[in-house]
Design a protein around this nucleic acid. Sequence first.
RNA 1: GGGUAGGUGGCAGAGUGGCUAAAUGCACGAGCCUGUAAAGCUCGCGACUAACGUCUACGAAGGUUCGAAUCCUUCCCUGCCCA
Length: 415
Amino acid sequence: MKFTIKQNDKDSNARVSELDTLHGKIETPCFMPVGTQATVRTLSNRELVEAGAQIILGNTYHLYIRPGIDLIEKAGGLHKFMNWNKPILTDSGGYQVFSLQESSYRRKDYVTPAPMQKISDEGVKFKAPIDGREYFFTPEEIIKAQVGLGSDIMMPLDECVKYPCEYDYAKKAMLRSVDWARRSKEEFNRLQATGYPVKLLRANGASKLQVKDKSNQILKPETCDLQLVFGIIQGSTYLDLREECLNKIVDIGFDGYAVGGLSVGEPKEELLRIASYSLEHLPRDKPRYMMGVGTPLDIIDAVSLGYDMFDCIIPTRHGRNGTAYTWDGKKVIKNAEFKEDFSPIDENCNCYVCKTYSRAYIRHLFNTREILGLKLLSLHNIHFYLQLMAQIRKAIKKNRFSDFKETFIEKYNNE
RNA sequence: GGGUAGGUGGCAGAGUGGCUAAAUGCACGAGCCUGUAAAGCUCGCGACUAACGUCUACGAAGGUUCGAAUCCUUCCCUGCCCA
C-alpha cells in the first residue's frame, strides 16, 4: 500500500496526501460521489470526471442482489461494466444492516435490530426489499464479492448501530464488527494466496492498467497492491468502545482506517468528539476515511482533524430533492422565493449548470417534475462538493487552510 | 318551449339532518434528507390571531328544526336530450 503525505497544514491536522490504486492515484482530502447501483444517479461518467471526481463509491449489498456479482464478473468487473476507469471504493452493505431495520423508519428510541434482517455472529440474514428474497451475508462472502467486483478499496462487512444505542448493544455490535473485520482480512489473505484476485483482474483486463508512481514509473499489477482493504471503527458514541475497537482493528492491520457509525442522528458535537478522539489513536501514515459524512461544514471540520476521505449521498439526493449547495450556503431551489430569480444557482460557480441555467428555470423544472431538474441540481451539487475539496487541498498546500476555513464558514452562513 | 341531470373550498370530486371548516386527489406553501429501500418523506393549506379562539362558508333568498352543505319554497345558472 502506498500512501504519501505531501503536505501537513501548519495550524491543524489537515494534510494533502496521495493514495495509489490500480486504477490511479487519488489526491486527498477527497470526496467520493456515491454510486450505489453502479451509477451516480443521473450523472454520466464524463460529467463526473469533468466535475473532478477521482474515485466513486459502489455498494456490494445492492450489486450482489442486482445484477449479481457473477454478472459483473462476466462483464469484466465493475469498472468495465460501468466503464469507469478510475478507482472505485465499495461499501460492504454494513450500512444497510443499519438502514434497513424496519424500526429505523418508525421509532426513534429503539436499540436492537428488527424484522427485515437477522444479525448473528456468523453474518446477516437479509430479506431483500426489492423482491423479498433471502440472502445470508457473511464477512467472507462480502470480501469475495468485492474481489469479484474488482474493487480498488474494499470495506469489510460491519454492523453500524443507530443513535442512540444502549451501551451493551453498542459493545456487542462493535465486538462483532471487529470479529468480522478479522475474518474479512483472513479471507482476503486466503484469496490472495490462491491467486484468485490476480487471475480475476487479469481476466478482466487489468494487465492493461497502468499506475504511475512519484518518479513517473509505471506500476504493474504485480508491483502494486491490487486491492486495498480498510478497517472500520465502530463503538457508537462511547469513547471507551471506540478506543477498544480501534486498538483491535489497528492490531489486525489494514491499508486504511474508516470511522463508521457517525451521522446517524447524533448531535454534531458528538460527531466531532468521536471523530476527533478516534483520529488521535489512528496511524497517521494511513488514509483515514470518515464514512457517510457529510455536509460541507462537517467535511471541513473533519479535514481539520486529519481525515482524508469522505462520501455522502447529500449532494446527489438533495439535488434530486430540490436543494442546491452554494458558497453562500444551502438553498431550496424549489421554494417560491426563486420563482422570478433569473440568476444562476451560484454566481461563483463555473459548472455547466451555473453557466447555462437560472434558478427560476430549474425551479420550474422541479415544479413540473421534469427529469432534467433532478439532473441539473445533482450535477451542480457534485461539482460544488468536488470543487470544495479541490479548494481545500489547494489551501492546505499553500498553508492557508485555516484562513480558507474561516472565510468559507463566514460566507456559508446557513446549513 | 318540453324533459332531465346538476350547481360543494384554486381545480377535480366525496358527503344527503348533528361525529363537517367539510373525505380524497391535484395544485400550492414550508420543513426534512449525512457509508441511497429516497425523482423521496413529513407537515400546512377559508379569513383574522402568537395562541385559546372568533367569524364567514357548500349557486341566491326565504323557511322547517334545539341543530341544515344535507329537508321545504321561490329564484338564478350550467350540462345533456327532444322539438
